[in-house]
C-alpha cells in the first residue's frame, strides 16, 4: 500500500533495504532511521505503554525518546540511528493492524 509522503525529498535516493515490522523499507545507505521511516510514510513509531496512544519522532535530536524502537532486539532512539542493510527494526507495543509502509 502506497502512502503519499508528507515530505518533499530534496535529494531522492534509495540504496539499502531493511526490515520494519515484517515489511521491507528502502532508504539511502547511512540515512537517519527516524527520517527514513518518515520518508517511507510511517509516522507512528511506537505506542504508549500506558494509554496505547501512538507516538512519533518529535525532537529528532535525541532528547525526547518518543521515537524509541527496537533494532535487533535492543531499544534505541530511531533518530540517533543510521540505516544499515538488513537491520531488523520493530515497534514497541504494536497493536493489531498497524501502519503499512511504502518504499
Amino acid at each position: 500500500m502506497k502512502i503519499d509522503s508528507r515530505f518533499l525529498e530534496l535529494t531522492p535516493s534509495k540504496g539499502v533495504e531493511f526490515d520494519f515490522d515484517g515489511q521491507t523499507v528502502c532508504a539511502p545507505d547511512g540515512a537517519n532511521l527516524a527520517a527514513a521511516l518518515l520518508a517511507a510514510g510511517v509516522s507512528s513509531l511506537r505506542w504508549n505503554a500506558v494509554s496505547g496512544s501512538p507516538r512519533g519522532a518529535y525532537c529528532l535530536m535525541g532528547a525526547c525518546f518518543e521515537c524509541l524502537v527496537k533494532i535487533d532486539g535492543v531499544s534505541v532512539r530511531a533518530c540517533q540511528q543510521t540505516v544499515k542493510a538488513g537491520m531488523l527494526v520493530t515497534r514497541l507495543n504494536h497493536p493489531q493492524g498497524g501502519e503499512h509502509v511504502s518504499s
Binding site: 509522503s5 508528507r6 515530505f7 518533499l8 525529498e9 530534496l10 535529494t11 540515512a31 537517519n32 527520517a35 527514513a36 518518515l38 520518508a39 509516522s43 507512528s44 513509531l45 504508549n48 496512544s53 501512538p54 507516538r55 512519533g56 519522532a57 518529535y58 525532537c59 529528532l60 535530536m61 518518543e66
Partner: peptide, 25 residues
C-alpha cells in the same frame, strides 16, 4: 501535541539539514 506527525520546529529543521526532507503542507 503527542500525535505522530507533530514535531518541534527544531525537528523540522533537522529533517531539512540532515536528511533533505522538507515538510509538505
Amino acid at each position: 501535541w503527542t500525535l505522530p506527525g507533530v514535531m518541534t520546529a527544531g525537528a523540522a529543521q533537522i529533517l531539512i539539514k540532515q536528511s533533505g526532507l522538507a515538510l509538505k503542507r
